[in-house]
């Protein structure tokens, strides 16, 4: 009895010697999201433009801001969305090659479901027009009816998929929505790297106002330029495109330039019409697959005032739409 009492007392005195944190295992979980319903093949067509052929016609479309320019490519995604890349570069100059390329991207809905782009199929694309795929002798052409005008343009390339052997790449090709946005800022005037997490999607105007409240020298014009940049979604396509869609502005469009499937990362290069103080027009982006979430990191340096240089890293946490 005495020994039992002593041993119980000794056991009560020995407290846990180590503190351990239970690591969250979501990073090691595989991607398990099911394919979207009725997922058709995605297709991307690139058009012959005047710069490459004097005889070729152009399909003129309007961007979100009302500017009209030639349609460079049209991509149909499995989410009933079409990504139209608009070539704003002014080609009515003596030396077109000297013109800096300006690309605008417009994301529209289309109503015709198709298992694949079958010749003869007509797609009604909201905000653009109707487009019919034709098969020519050894290729394809598109007959477009835009604003009452009909024009047929040869297609230089019809892309099916990039990374066809990658199941993961095919699985992440869908629409995503932004769950949270993390801003990491560093540079002169900031004694340590600063982080701010926005848990309500991504509204660049709100983010810009926050940055200007913390960092000196951010002009009101730069904040005003962010109006309308409210991210409504991100689209990844099997042809290697990524599009960041905004509610009131042209989308940001990027193309795949690196595919490291083993690490679950995809690298993209963006080329958009206008950059702003948060998203650089020619940013590079990396998408990492973590469990059933995607993280899109965009890095772009921007001068916010004349004396301080800040780097801003934007990370979108994406979940399936």
């Amino acid at each position: 009895m005495k020994k039992t009492l002593i041993m119980l007392a000794a056991a009560a005195m020995i407290l846990p010697a180590a503190f351990s944190c239970k690591k969250n295992n979501s990073e090691n979980q595989p991607f398990t999201l099911a394919d979207p319903v009725n997922k058709p093949h995605q297709v991307k067509v690139e058009f012959v433009t005047k710069a490459s052929s004097a005889e070729a016609q152009e399909i003129k479309v309007k961007g979100v801001d009302g500017r009209t320019a030639a349609l460079k490519s049209l991509e149909l995604t499995n989410g009933q969305k079409a990504i139209a890349i608009i070539d704003y570069a002014n080609r009515e100059v003596e030396n077109p090659k000297a013109v800096k390329a300006e690309i605008g991207a417009k994301v529209c809905k289309y109503t015709v479901k198709a298992v694949k782009a079958t010749p003869g199929t007509t797609y009604e694309i909201e905000g653009l027009g109707t487009f019919t795929l034709n098969q020519t002798g050894d290729g394809y052409s598109i007959t477009a009816v835009v604003d009452g005008e009909t024009v047929t343009v040869n297609v230089t390339e019809v892309k099916a998929m990039v990374g066809a052997d990658s199941d993961l790449f095919k699985k992440v090709a869908r629409e995503w929505k932004v769950k949270a946005t993390t801003i990491n800022a560093s540079g002169t005037g900031i004694p340590a790297g600063l982080t701010k997490v926005f848990n309500d999607g991504c509204n660049l105007e709100s983010i810009g106002e926050w940055i200007s409240s913390k960092i000196e020298g951010v002009s009101a014009e730069k904040i005003a330029a962010l109006k309308g940049y409210n991210v409504s979604g991100v689209i990844l396509t099997e042809s290697g495109s990524v599009s960041i869609e905004f509610t009131g502005k042209d989308a940001f469009a990027g193309t795949l330039n690196n595919l490291d499937i083993n690490a679950g990362t995809f690298g993209y290069v963006f080329e958009s019409t206008e950059g702003n103080m948060i998203l650089s027009a020619r940013a590079t982006g990396i998408i990492r697959v973590v469990g059933n979430k995607l993280f899109l990191t965009l890095v772009g340096a921007a001068n916010y005032n004349e004396t301080n240089n800040y780097n801003v890293e934007v990370i979108f946490e994406l979940e399936a739409a």
Partner: peptide, 24 residues
């Protein structure tokens, strides 16, 4: 996180070192 954001589900206690402050 592996995705680049911060894992808000994990709360740790981090001990600061001189190396963390070097250069700042």
């Amino acid at each position: 996180t592996a995705g680049g954001s911060w894992d808000m589900t994990q709360k740790l206690t981090y001990s600061l070192t001189s190396d963390d402050l070097t250069g700042s």
